[in-house]
């Protein structure tokens, strides 16, 4: 069967079409979801895409976290549905308390776009099961508010419970504590990260690699991982 993965469009979402393309390239059907509705349209998994939802007013992701669709997303996440938050989507997951901690302005105060090295720290989630723990991958990063923070106790718990999904390698681009690039929840169905896997899914339009320019497709495995997780249920 073809799995159906929803992508929520908020006012100010920017990468929702990229996420839909990534889902199609992984072999699933992409379903458009709307922020102002309570309808998940029977999807099997959900992606919260990057962008500047509601203009990032108040705090990045803060308004989206209380939008009508998010109450449904929170409920679905509670039942074990795979949910991936990318960049602004990660910020929403944190604001909605599905993932712990917070994201603040980059330490250097600038927006930064770069091809970012990541180490997979937890390959036992719905969005990382096609990787092995310790794998090093490159996917694009682009954000202004990507600095991960948490109080000492939370940080200790997150590390102790193996909930760091990805860590920055080579260079910490935003001052994130412990080089944290992405997290998972305890159950492993909810994953959020600042870099953009949906921008490394198609040869010709991804990051440069040793092999050829713009040939990086490390991001595709996030989406095939979700299909594998769904198939295993």
């Amino acid at each position: 069967m073809t799995f159906r993965i929803g992508v929520v469009t908020f006012p100010g979402s920017l990468d929702e079409r990229d996420a839909q393309r990534a889902i199609r390239l992984a072999g699933a059907e992409a379903v458009e979801l709307w922020h102002g509705e309570h309808d998940l349209k029977g999807v099997d998994a959900i992606v919260l895409p990057g962008g500047f939802s509601y203009g990032d007013y108040l705090r990045a992701g803060a308004i989206a976290a209380v939008s009508p669709i998010m109450s449904e997303v929170i409920d679905a996440a509670g039942t074990g549905m795979p949910v991936l938050g990318i960049c602004n989507g990660f910020q929403m997951l944190v604001e909605a308390h599905l993932l712990p901690g917070g994201l603040i302005r980059n330490a250097h105060q600038q927006f930064i776009r770069r091809d970012q090295g990541l180490r997979v720290e937890n390959a036992d989630t719905a969005w990382t099961n096609e990787f092995a723990t310790g794998d090093e991958i490159i996917i694009p990063l682009k954000n202004g508010d990507g600095g991960y923070i948490a109080d000492a106790e939370t940080l200790k718990r997150v590390e102790g419970e193996g909930r760091v999904a990805f860590r920055y390698t080579g260079l910490n681009p935003n001052g994130s504590l412990n080089d944290i690039a992405g997290l998972t929840n305890e159950r492993g169905n909810v994953v959020g990260l600042m870099p953009h896997p949906e921008h490394a899914v198609e040869a010709g339009f991804g990051p440069d690699t040793e092999v050829a320019m713009r040939s990086g497709v490390d991001g595709l495995r996030f989406f095939t991982s979700a299909l594998r997780a769904l198939a295993a249920v």
Binding site: D15, Q110, F111, I112, R114, V201
Partner: peptide, 13 residues
Amino acid sequence: TNQYDYYVMGNTA
């Protein structure tokens, strides 16, 4: 240029 996003939309060749 590192402050500019050229990835968005996924069509940048």
